[in-house]
């Protein structure tokens, strides 16, 4: 079995998206509250949005897996990232800092912050790289799978460290 750099990047992103979608769907109640708290979606549409968003996320993750449907997956995933980033951006501009990100998946609980916008930008770059010119470089299939896993692990660790850092701030100020 052989793969490409595109496989590595796309599979890593697929894992992230699938984990996010599954956790949002499993904890629908909580995600609905998070959507409501963002104060962007009209009240009547909150329930539908809280179901639709993770479904699009799920579709994006699945479409990213096979090389044939990958461009569609990239488009959907970029839409998901753009929607989430816009929501975070608007609320940061409103001056809100105490707002659960509702990211789910590997991100755990953390408030919204500018770092999440940076994170989403990096994820978007990875998605674009997966359909970019360098992505056709060949890799052994095993390396693509293992590399995707490592990328996901690094992402999860970075996200956790970010959540920790945000928790640390008030204590540092109080001291």
């Amino acid at each position: 079995m052989s793969g490409t750099v595109a496989d590595l990047l796309a599979w890593a992103m697929a894992l992230l998206l699938l984990a996010g979608a599954v956790s949002k769907l499993r904890e629908r109640g909580e995600f609905t509250l998070a959507v409501e708290a963002y104060e962007l979606v009209p009240e009547r549409a909150v329930g539908a949005f809280a179901l639709g968003f993770p479904l699009v996320e799920l579709a994006a993750g699945l479409l990213l897996l096979p090389a044939a449907t990958r461009p569609w997956g990239v488009v959907l995933a970029l839409l998901v990232l753009a929607a989430a980033s816009a929501a975070i951006f608007v609320n940061l501009r409103r001056g809100r800092r105490v707002l659960d990100c509702g990211c789910g998946g590997l991100s755990g609980r953390q408030p919204i912050s500018g770092w999440l916008l940076l994170r989403n930008a990096i994820l978007a770059l990875i998605l674009l790289a997966a359909v970019g010119p360098a992505a056709v470089l060949p890799l052994p299939g095993s390396a693509a799978v293992l590399g995707a896993l490592v990328l996901v692990l690094v992402y999860a660790a970075a996200d956790q460290l970010l959540a920790n850092a945000l928790r640390m701030t008030p204590v540092a100020r109080a001291g």
Binding site: A143, L146, L149, L153, A157, A163
Partner: peptide, 19 residues
Amino acid sequence: WVAVLVLGVAVLALARQVG
């Protein structure tokens, strides 16, 4: 590869414990 994966898991676990 094994070493990188194990280290990745270890870093994630450490970060979670700090959390």
